[in-house]
Design a protein around this nucleic acid. Structure first.
Lengths: 342, 342
DNA sequence: TTGTATGCGTTATCAG
DNA sequence: CTGATAACGCATACAA
C-alpha cells in the first residue's frame, strides 16, 4: 500500500524566512505582501524576489487569526444541492461567481442549509468563518435568513421574499422587461393574436413576466386576455397549450414563461399538426438547454445568469471594502436569443 | 445596523471565557471540545454547559493555526463551473458529497482550475489550505494533477486518465456492468436484433458500456455488430439512429449510451413512424432529466451519482483519519430505471 | 485527570 | 519608511 498521508513538504516558508532572505524584518515583508504603499521600491523588489525564490505562500489561518478576516465568502444554498446545481440557471450563476472571484484572493465556501432549518449554516456564517455571504435559491418562508442580519455583509441572488428588518442588497433580473421583450418580438414579427403560458401565480418572477407581456400588448393595442397559468414543467406547458388552442382558435403566437413549458407546448402543437413557426410562433424564457434539445430551436429570453453571479460578487466586494453607498437593487437586463420558433 | 435577535454582537466568546465560566483551564475546555476521552464526566458536563450558555463556537483560524489542520476539503473542478454543474450527474454527485459532509465539521471549498493551467489551484491545495481534495471532471491531459501528489490525500471522481506516479484513489461506476444491464433487459423482453448508439471512441466510459453491450449479446448468442458511434448529443443520436435504421431494417431494439442521444433517437424514430416500444424498444443511460422530458418516458440506466459523491467523502475521511488500507478502486453499481420505452 | 507554558504565522501598534 | 513586539485563539508537549 503506497503511503498516502506522507508530507514530503519541508517546512513551508514563512514570513520569517522571507524576511531573512531579503534582509528585512517580518513587518516589512508583510507590508509588501499586502501591498502597502509605504515601502521603498528597492526593498519591495528585494522582498518579491525572496518570495519568488522561496515560493512563499501566506498562511491563511495565521493571517485570518491576526486580521480577523477570512478571505472566504459563503455561497449559502438553502436547499438540496443537487436541485440547486441541476438548475442550469444556478449553475451558470455560480460560474459567474467563480469567474469574478478568480481575480481576487477570496475563496468560495459551499454552505448548505437543507435539513437543519438553517441552524448550522447560520452558526457557520455568524461564527466568523466567512467575511460575507451570497444567498441564492431562497424562498418565501426561509425566515432563518433573518438571523444572518447584522453578522456579515450579505448579497441575495434574487429579491428575497422574507421579512428582513433591514433593506436587503440583492441582484435580480428584470422579469417585466423580459416578458415585454419576448412579446414585443412577436408583435414586431406581425403576430396579432398572442397568448401566454404564464408561470405559477404565487411566484413574483412569473407575475412580472406576465405584466411585461400585458404591457407590450397594451402598447400595441392588442388583446391581452389569452392567459393560462402552468407550473413551469413540460407537461404543464403541454396542457396549457391545449387549453389555449381550444379557447382561442385564432391564436398565432405564444409567449411561454419558461423554456420547459415551451417545449411541452411544442409537442402539443406538433401532435395537432400545427406548424411552428408557420402557424404559431413561440418564444420561451430562460435559454436553458431545453431550448436547443428539440428539433426546432426555441427563440427565448436569456437571463444573464452569469452576469448576475459576477454582479453579486462585485457588490459584495464593495460591501466588504466598506463602500457606503452600494445600491440595494442591482437589476440586470435580459436578452433575446432568436432561433427557429419565432 | 439594526440589532439582531439573540446575541448582542460583543466579543465572540473564546476558550478562555468558557474556561473561566466552567472553573477549569483552557486546556480542559479544549479537550472537551475535541472529545478527548481523558476528562472526568462531571467536568465534561460543566464545560458543555458553559459552552452552551455562552454560545461558544471554536475559532476556525486559531484552531487551524495551532493544529495545522484546516477542517476543510477542496472540491477541485478542472473546468468551467457552469458546465460542471450544468451536468446533472455532477450536480447530483456534489449533492452526495454535501450530504455526507453535513455530518462532519468539514467544509467544502470550491476550487476551480479553468483558465490558469492549474497553477493557482495547485498552489491553493499545496499551500496547506485544505486537508484533502476531491477531484472531479478531470480529463486526459490534465497533467497538472500530478503536482497535487504528495501534498494532501486526494480522491478522484472517476478513474483519472493522467500519468500519476502513485496509484490514485478513486470512485467510479461500473460502466461495463451498466451496458450489460441495459442490454440484458432488452434481451429478456424478447428482443433479438439489438443495436447500440455508442459514445465517442476515445472515452473509456463509452467503451466500457459498449463492452457490456457486446458481452450481453454474446452470452445470449445474438449478433453484436449493429454499432454506431455518436458524440453524446441529441442530434448525434438522431443521426446515428437513422444510420442504424438504414443498415439494419430488422432492428427491434437499441441501447443508447446516453439519454441525450436516446432522445435524439426517439425523435428520429417518431419522424419515421416507428412505434416505441412497439416496433423498437430503446434503453438510455444516465437517468438524466432528458429521460422524462419527452412524451414517452425513457427506460434508462441510472448512475448512482449521489452515492458516488458520498463514497468519495467516506474514502477521503478514512484517508484523513490515517486509515492505512483504504481500497484504491471504489466501484459502485448501476441500476435500471424502467419507464415506457423498453 | 488536569493545569502550565509555549508556539503556530500574521497583522497591527507603536517607536524610531 | 522600517523594525520591534504584542496580540489573535487554540492545541499540545510537559508537569503535576
Amino acid at each position: 500500500m503506497p503511503t498516502v498521508t506522507g508530507h514530503p513538504e519541508r517546512h513551508a516558508p514563512t514570513l520569517e524566512a522571507v524576511a531573512e532572505a531579503a534582509g528585512v524584518s517580518r513587518a516589512t515583508v508583510s507590508r509588501v505582501v499586502n501591498g502597502s504603499p509605504s515601502v521603498r521600491g528597492a526593498v519591495v523588489e528585494a522582498v518579491q524576489k525572496a518570495i519568488a525564490d522561496l515560493g512563499y505562500v501566506p498562511n491563511r489561518a495565521a493571517r485570518s487569526l491576526a486580521s480577523s478576516r477570512t478571505h472566504s465568502i459563503a455561497l449559502l444554498v438553502p436547499e438540496d444541492v443537487s436541485r440547486f446545481f441541476g438548475d442550469p440557471y444556478f449553475a451558470s450563476f455560480t460560474g459567474g461567481l467563480d469567474r469574478r472571484l478568480a481575480d481576487t484572493e477570496y475563496v468560495l465556501n459551499l454552505v448548505v442549509a437543507r435539513d437543519d432549518p438553517g441552524r448550522k449554516a447560520v452558526r457557520y456564517v455568524r461564527g466568523g468563518n466567512v467575511d460575507g455571504a451570497i444567498v441564492v435559491s431562497h424562498h418565501r418562508g426561509h425566515d432563518f435568513l433573518r438571523q444572518l442580519e447584522g453578522s456579515v455583509p450579505i448579497v441575495y441572488g434574487g429579491r428575497p421574499d422574507v421579512a428582513l428588518s433591514a433593506e436587503p442588497v440583492f441582484v435580480d433580473v428584470d422579469n417585466e422587461a423580459g416578458g415585454h421583450l419576448a412579446t414585443r418580438h412577436l408583435i414586431e414579427s406581425g403576430r396579432t393574436r398572442i397568448a401566454t403560458i404564464a408561470g405559477p401565480e404565487d411566484m413574483p418572477a412569473a407575475l412580472d413576466r406576465l405584466a411585461g407581456f400585458r404591457r407590450a400588448l397594451r402598447e400595441a393595442g392588442l388583446p391581452d386576455d389569452a392567459v393560462v397559468h402552468a407550473n413551469f414543467t413540460a407537461s404543464g406547458g403541454a396542457e396549457a397549450m391545449r387549453t389555449l388552442l381550444s379557447r382561442h382558435s385564432d391564436l398565432d403566437a405564444v409567449f411561454s414563461a419558461s423554456d420547459l413549458m415551451a417545449s411541452g407546448a411544442l409537442t402539443a402543437l406538433a401532435s395537432r399538426g400545427v406548424d411552428v413557426p408557420g402557424d404559431v410562433a413561440i418564444v420561451g424564457y430562460d435559454d436553458s438547454p431545453a431550448a436547443t434539445w428539440g428539433e426546432i430551436g426555441l427563440t427565448t429570453v436569456r437571463q444573464p445568469s452569469e452576469l448576475m453571479g459576477a454582479t453579486a460578487v462585485d457588490v459584495l466586494l464593495r460591501l466588504l471594502a466598506g463602500d457606503a453607498d452600494v445600491p440595494h437593487e442591482n437589476i440586470v437586463q435580459t436578452e433575446l436569443v432568436i432561433r427557429d420558433s419565432a
